[in-house]
């Protein structure tokens, strides 16, 4: 770990100003950043501790939605009564991730911008375009069991490891950003993340002079919400594939659906194709199969991860059946 200076921010605007200094980074929960700093993958020269900024609250919005402060801890969001009753898919996604100890530390904003768990990204001796742009991608042709099947490029086949962000994607969340000049903007979560293309080191649209201050959840769609995470062991493991689904069924017909996958792409993968294949169709297995085929139509396996294509289809079908069956 490289040496750095440390400051604790007490004012949100001042914190954003402080991070514009070259080499500066925010630290909040630290559960991903310190992990990476110990391996010299991240090497900030200055840390701005934003964990105590007054951005912890979860607030009602006038339109019936919720605003989750960027500093709200994952465990607090998962346990929030309003989240549990109105956005259970988010609560389920959060508690399926990491461990109780990590969720007590990890912040909402930090969870959104966590880095990939690709083992080659974690190995400074391996080629990795995300860590060392231009060096190549060791995962292509390497051990790529956990890697992307959708939206990847020849530069990078890493996945985004968050569960929380997958649920937020299915909930049409927006990310709220604050600039050093005090101006704010909102970005739809699907636009917040970038696909790797040939610049996999740029993972989202967060500017160097910006801070995530919150996540906005619009009022939920009617219908059942389910988060399903598939993994080798029963707990404490990143997803091989996960599905967040919101399905609204009226008299046996799907009126509306939201579908997002985790563990399959460089970003939480919203599948409009699956949603289109579901809308106004009967809530039956053949519909779900068609949606799964549509969702995975462009999927590409890299060898070890070939199975994830079929796995994602099956996970989606079962999740849709459960969500539709219960609504």
């Amino acid at each position: 770990m490289k040496s750095f200076t440390y400051e604790r921010a007490t004012d949100t605007r001042a914190a954003v100003a402080a991070v514009t200094r070259p080499g500066a980074k925010f630290i909040s929960g630290g559960t991903n950043l310190l992990d990476l700093m110990k391996l010299d993958i991240e090497y900030p020269s200055h840390l701005v501790d934003i964990s105590r900024l007054p951005l912890r609250d979860i607030e009602e919005l006038p339109d019936g939605g919720l605003r989750i402060g960027a500093q709200a801890r994952n465990s607090d969001v998962a346990a929030d009564r309003r989240v549990r009753t109105r956005y259970p898919v988010l609560s389920e996604a959060l508690v399926s991730g990491a461990s109780g100890q990590l969720r007590n530390k990890a912040s909402t904003g930090g969870n959104l911008v966590q880095r990939t768990r690709c083992p080659y990204f974690y190995d400074t001796a391996a080629d990795c375009n995300k860590r060392d742009p231009g060096s190549g991608c060791a995962a292509i042709g390497g051990f790529n069991r956990i890697h992307a099947i959708l939206g990847a490029s020849e530069s990078c086949i890493a996945t985004h490891p968050s569960d929380m962000a997958v649920a937020m994607t299915a909930l049409d969340a927006e990310v709220e950003l604050l600039r050093a000049d005090g101006s704010a903007r909102r970005v739809a979560i699907t636009d917040f993340y970038r696909l790797p293309g040939d610049t996999p080191h740029i993972e989202n649209v967060l500017g160097g002079d910006e801070m995530i201050t919150g996540v906005l959840l619009p009022p939920p769609l009617p219908g059942r919400q389910i988060y399903r995470k598939v993994r080798d062991r029963a707990s404490y493991e990143f997803a091989l594939v996960s599905v967040a689904a919101v399905v609204s069924v009226v008299q046996g017909t799907i009126r509306e659906a939201r579908v997002a996958f985790g563990g399959v792409a460089h970003k939480p993968w919203r599948s409009v194709e699956a949603e289109d294949a579901l809308t106004d169709r009967p809530a039956r297995m053949d519909t779900y199969r068609a949606a799964a085929e549509a969702a995975l139509r462009g999927a590409v396996g890299r060898g070890d991860n070939d199975f994830k294509i079929e796995l994602a289809k099956r996970a989606l079908c079962r999740t849709l059946a459960q969500a539709a069956g219960a609504s």
């Binding site: 768990r117 083992p119 390497g142 062991r233 707990s235």
Partner: peptide, 16 residues
Amino acid sequence: AFVNRDFAGYLVPVHG
């Protein structure tokens, strides 16, 4: 090199 050389990559049984 062993690629999955940590407790996140090399899985051992957990409580669950």
